[in-house]
Each structure stands twice: as structure tokens, then as C-alpha cells.
Amino acid sequence: MSVIQSYRSLSDAQKGRARGAPAYSIYVNRPLGRVLASVAHAAGLTPNQVTLVSAAFTFTGIALLVAVPPSLPLGVIVWLMLAIGYAWDSADGQVARLRGGGSLVGEWLDHIVDSAKIVSLHVAVVVGMYRYVEPLEATWLLVPLAFAVVATVTFFGMILNDLLRARLGVGQSTQTGGSSPLRAIAGLPTDYGTLCFVFVFWGWAPGFMALYTLLALAAILYLAAALAVWFRKMNALSGVQA
């Protein structure tokens, strides 16, 4: 199947939008992933191979934060590595759909890579700041550490929600509602694509820390609201009064 044929076939093989999915993920990352998936499928790559390509870009960008002193050119490179890795992350599932469906091991590998990148990106910020930013108030290191905790709990919460709902035969978020344009735009502060772009300012410490801290606060507020909603829904599904 050619690239063009693969691309056209994907129009009939797209999954639904997750409820509350943010704008970058919907309007930028998934279309980019569709192009990459078409190329990968035409080249004969498997979904797992696409996942590994995604990981190679992502963890190259993360490693640069630790290994190379900050600069504006480096920030652009890191952003591109993370953004390209994110696009390839969208492509693996689309390749799986082109091939007739994903596999258990493919889903496992995808989630393992995602969980590793979510925490390691913020750990790399801690290490990079500690190594290269002077003078640095030690309290600023608490921001990426808190961000790592919040991002990890949020990711695990979403995975656990779908796991427990599936056990009861309840549809996942992609099956139970879409995301309006207004809601998608409102979700930009919590979008991984937005976080990737902030690294453009990696060589300008005050600007980077201001934007990064705002995103950390948005992530904290989102998790606080999400936990309340998730608990209420789980309580309703279990039939147990808290």
C-alpha cells in the first residue's frame, strides 16, 4: 500500500476523540501522526517499531537537557525532538489500525514508553537546572519535582480509570464523548504539546521557569478537579456510598 493509499485509509480508521482532549493533540499532533503513520505503514514498519522511533526522538531530547548547557538553539532542538517524538507516538496506534488492530504487547510497550517519558522529562529539568543554571534558588527545583509527581499520578489515574471501567464493561473515554473546540482550547495549558513548546525558552532561564511554573500550576489544578470527578464516577460505578 502506498503512502497516499495509507493516508486515505486512515480516514476510515480514526479513533474517537477522548473527552476533554486538548487542542494541540487534536488539531496538530494527530494529523502529523497520520502523515507519519502513512509513511511508516508504506515502509512496512510495525506499530512497535514506530513506538521505538517515537522513543528515540523523545529520549534524545530529554538527554540533551541533561548533557548540554542551555541555549536558545538547544531549546529549539529539544522542542523539535519532543514534538516529533509525540507525533510518532500518535502514529503507532494509527499504524495498528491500518494493520487491522493493535496487540496486547503493543499497548503494553506504548504505555511503558509513555510512563517513562512523563517522569524522566521533569527529572531532566531538575538535573539540567541544577547543573547549569547559576545562581539558582534551590526551591525552584521543587517545581519540576512536583510536576513529575502530578504528571505521573494523572497518567496513572487515566489508565486506571479505563482499566476499571473495562472490567465493568463500561466504555472508555474515547467511546463516551467528544471534545468541543472551546473545551480543546481551554485544555491547552495541560497539553503535552504545549509543554514541549516551552522548551524553546530553555536557554532563557527566567522565561522558561515562568512558563514552566504556570504549566505546573495548571497541571495541579487539573489533577485536583479530575480526582474529584474520577472519585465520584468510580463511586457511582461501584455502588458504594463514600
Rank of each mutant, 00 (worst) to 15 (best):
V68W: 02
W79E: 10
A96Y: 00
G16S: 00
A138T: 15
L223K: 13
L74Y: 02
D114Q: 14
Y24P: 04
A67M: 13
I4M: 14
G101F: 05
D89T: 01
L214Y: 03
T194R: 11
A210V: 13
N161K: 14
L104K: 03
L80F: 06
G128C: 05
A13F: 05
M234F: 06
L215G: 00
T213D: 07
G157L: 13
Q5T: 03
G101T: 09
P47V: 01
G33Q: 05
Q241P: 02
Q241G: 10
R8E: 11
I185K: 10
A146V: 15
A56N: 07
D191L: 08
A151Y: 01
R30P: 01
A91L: 00
W140I: 02
P31S: 05
G193K: 09
N235Y: 08
D114M: 09
R34Q: 05
G178M: 11
V229G: 06
S238R: 05
L182D: 00
L10D: 03
R232Y: 10
Y24R: 03
F208P: 03
W204V: 12
L217I: 15
V149H: 10
A151M: 00
V149I: 15
A83P: 00
L227Y: 02
F57Y: 00
S180M: 07
L214S: 08
S2L: 01
V68R: 11
V113D: 08
G100K: 12
I185P: 11
R183I: 09
S9M: 10
N235Q: 13
D92M: 01
Y24G: 11
A210Q: 10
R97T: 05
V66Y: 09
G171C: 12
I77D: 11
G20N: 15
D110K: 05
L141P: 03
G128Y: 09
L142K: 10
P70A: 12
P22F: 04
I26L: 15
V95D: 06
A43F: 01
A83F: 04
V143N: 08
V123Y: 02
I220F: 13
L98F: 01
G102Y: 07
S54R: 02
S6K: 12
S6R: 14
V68D: 07
D12A: 14
V3M: 04
A228S: 12
G178A: 09
I4Q: 14
D114S: 15
A210E: 03
A37D: 00
T46A: 07
T194V: 14
L74C: 02
I118L: 12
L221M: 14
V95Y: 03
G33L: 09
L237W: 14
P70R: 08
N235F: 08
W108G: 03
A225V: 12
V126A: 15
T139I: 12
M129H: 08
V28F: 06
S179M: 07
T176P: 09
R165P: 04
V198C: 09
Q175P: 06
H122Y: 08
I112P: 01
T176E: 12
G85T: 01
W108Q: 01
V133N: 07
V127W: 03
L188C: 10
S25Y: 02
W230T: 10
P189V: 02
